[in-house]
């Protein structure tokens, strides 16, 4: 039996080796490299091999970096909140109200916009929300407002709306999967035991859907913090997020050690936030297992 296991393990390793080695070479090696770079000194046109904490000291004390880092965190948190709150009722509708044979079509409709050109979608949000944009020109045209609405003009709000649109399927799909797994007889039991519909939702459905909601939160939060395109296009480069700062340090200023320190710090913060979030929600994750 032990021998059989060995043969199976060997075969497994042989199969997983090509994709794993590829990921090691193209992902792990580069990540280790920027980790190393972040401790080196920036020289003129090259990186000097002197160990230093100076890059991190600069990252943590520079007020610009702090502002941008904080803004990135706030924007990502807002995007995550908005996306998940907007997405939950849709996931709930598709899982509980749509007839089984129609579910796949609904999911397909929800995912289609996600696969169309990201740049053009972001640009069109600028067109929709802009000064002479679709919303403002139709509202002024109808005589509802005199002045264009300013709270959606090229600012953090418009970045949040654009990103909430871009990451919608990332929130809907995990929540939908979690809702689908809920045993419907549990809900009937809740009703039979005299709970109201709202209480059943609150005490049975929501806790059971929590793993999906948590997955949605992480899967939206992590990539949005590193978004480069939306601040660049919507904010016109005036409200940079952390990705824009990394790009400037790495390419425009060619300070690779500082850029690497920024990237590593950003990743560490994201990892930390995610871990804290998971720990806080350990209770909900246990429900499944």
């Amino acid at each position: 039996m032990a021998k059989g296991l060995d043969a199976q393990a060997r075969q497994g390793y042989a199969l997983i080796a090509p994709p794993f080695l590829y990921a090691l070479l193209i992902l792990a090696a580069p990540l280790l490299t920027i980790l190393t770079y972040s401790f080196l000194t920036d020289g003129y046109l090259e990186v000097v091999r002197d160990f230093t904490w100076a890059n991190y000291a600069q990252v943590w004390t520079d007020p610009i970096v702090r502002t941008v880092m904080l803004r990135s965190l706030v924007v990502s948190a807002l995007v995550t909140l908005v996306t998940v709150l907007l997405a939950f009722p849709v996931a709930y509708y598709v899982s509980f109200m749509v007839r089984p044979e129609k579910k796949a079509t609904w999911l397909f409709l929800i995912t289609i916009p996600f696969w169309t050109s990201y740049l053009i979608r972001v640009f069109l949000w600028k067109v929709i929300l802009g000064y002479n944009g679709v919303i403002n020109s139709s509202l002024t045209g109808l005589g509802i407002i005199d002045e264009p609405l300013t709270f959606i003009l090229y600012n953090v709000n418009s970045i949040v709306i654009t990103l909430a649109h871009a990451y919608a399927p990332f929130a809907i799909l995990p929540i939908f999967v979690a809702l689908e797994k809920i045993d419907r007889s549990l809900l009937e039991a809740g009703r039979d035991l005299g709970e109201s519909r709202a209480m059943t939702f609150w005490r049975v459905t929501l806790p059971l859907a929590m793993p999906g909601v948590l997955a949605a939160v992480l899967i939206v939060f992590i990539p949005t913090i590193g978004d480069y395109v939306t601040p660049e296009l919507i904010g016109g480069g005036k409200i940079p997020m952390i990705a824009n700062l990394i790009q400037v340090q790495m390419l425009a200023l060619d300070n690779r050690p500082l850029g690497s320190a920024l990237a590593v710090t950003a990743m560490a913060i994201v990892a930390l936030v995610s871990i804290v979030f998971l720990l806080i929600n350990r209770r909900f994750l246990k429900v499944r297992s």
Partner: peptide, 27 residues
């Protein structure tokens, strides 16, 4: 197949799905 370390290896291969692309591109 079942083998020790499968979860970790698969998780690592799937990591780019959640890693910000700017990090992948820059490194």
């Amino acid at each position: 197949f079942e083998f020790p370390g499968k979860g970790g290896m698969m998780g690592f291969i799937l990591l780019p799905m959640v890693l910000p692309e700017i990090i992948v591109a820059m490194s």
